[in-house]
C-alpha cells in the first residue's frame, strides 16, 4: 500500500464501495493518519481518553462518508475539516452542558455601542473593530481571540493548540488583547466626532 498516495487509496476505496475489498485501503489510511488525528484531538481536549474517543468517532465519520470525497481535493484537508468540525461541535456541546463555563466575564462594556441597535450599526461597529484588531493586536493575540470567541474553545484548549507556555496561558493574551482594543477604541473615539459611535470607520 505504501506506493499509493492518500488520494489513490481513497479512489480504490470508492471503487470497492460496499465490498470487503475496500478494507485494506481504509486500514492503510487509518495507519497513516491515526497518530495525527489522536494527537490533534489531544490538543483540543487535553485528556487521553476523550481524545481517543473523538479520534475514533472522526474516523468512523470519515470512512462512512468516504464516497463523498471529491477527486482533486487533498485527503488530509478533507480529514482535517471532519476533525475540526467534530471537535468544535463537541466543545460547544460540552460548554452547553457545563453551566460554570465562564472563564472570562462577558460584559456589556462601553465600546460605544449603546446606540448600535440596528443591524447596520452593529455591522459597522464590527468593521471598526476589525480595523482596530489589524492595527493593535499581534498574531498570537489575534489567534487566541479567534479561537476563544469564534470557535468557543476553552482557554486551556487554546493554550495547548497554540503551544502557549506562559503561566496563565491564553487568558493573559485575552486580557492583553482586550486592553489594547479598548485603548485603540478610546483613541479612535477621541479623533472622531462622537455623533453616533461606530458609524464613521
Amino acid at each position: 500500500m505504501e506506493q499509493f498516495t492518500d488520494e489513490e487509496l481513497v479512489e480504490r476505496c470508492q471503487a470497492a464501495e460496499g465490498s470487503a475489498a475496500r478494507e485494506p485501503f481504509l486500514d492503510a489510511l487509518f495507519q497513516r493518519h491515526s497518530a495525527r488525528v489522536a494527537s490533534w484531538c489531544y490538543h483540543i481536549t487535553g485528556d487521553v481518553n476523550s481524545a481517543a474517543d473523538l479520534a475514533q468517532e472522526i474516523f468512523v465519520k470519515a470512512f462512512m462518508g468516504i464516497h463523498g470525497f471529491r477527486r482533486g481535493s487533498k485527503f488530509t484537508t478533507w480529514l482535517y475539516s471532519i476533525s475540526r468540525n467534530h471537535c468544535l461541535d463537541e466543545l460547544r456541546s460540552r460548554k452547553r452542558r457545563m453551566e460554570e463555563y465562564s472563564e472570562l466575564p462577558d460584559d456589556i462594556q462601553d465600546w460605544g455601542l449603546e446606540s448600535a441597535d440596528s443591524a447596520i450599526e452593529r455591522y459597522e461597529s464590527g468593521e471598526l473593530m476589525k480595523k482596530l484588531i489589524r492595527e493593535s493586536l499581534d498574531e498570537t493575540e489575534t489567534k487566541v481571540m479567534t479561537l476563544h470567541y469564534v470557535h468557543e474553545m476553552p482557554l486551556d484548549s487554546v493554550s495547548r493548540m497554540l503551544g502557549l507556555t506562559n503561566d496563565s496561558g491564553a487568558k493573559a493574551y485575552i486580557v492583553s488583547a482586550r486592553r489594547k482594543l479598548k485603548r485603540a477604541h478610546e483613541l479612535w473615539k477621541s479623533h472622531h466626532k462622537p455623533t453616533k459611535a461606530g458609524t464613521q470607520c
Binding site: A35, A38, S39, V48, A52, T76, L79, Y80, S83, M161
Partner: peptide, 24 residues
C-alpha cells in the same frame, strides 16, 4: 489550525499524545 493538523502526529509527540494514539 490546518497547519497544526498537518504537523500533528509527526515529529516529537508528548507522552499523552502517544497514549491517545495507542488507545486509538
Amino acid at each position: 489550525l490546518l497547519k497544526s493538523f498537518e504537523a500533528a502526529g509527526s515529529g516529537e509527540m508528548s507522552r499523552e499524545e502517544i497514549k491517545a494514539a495507542a488507545l486509538l
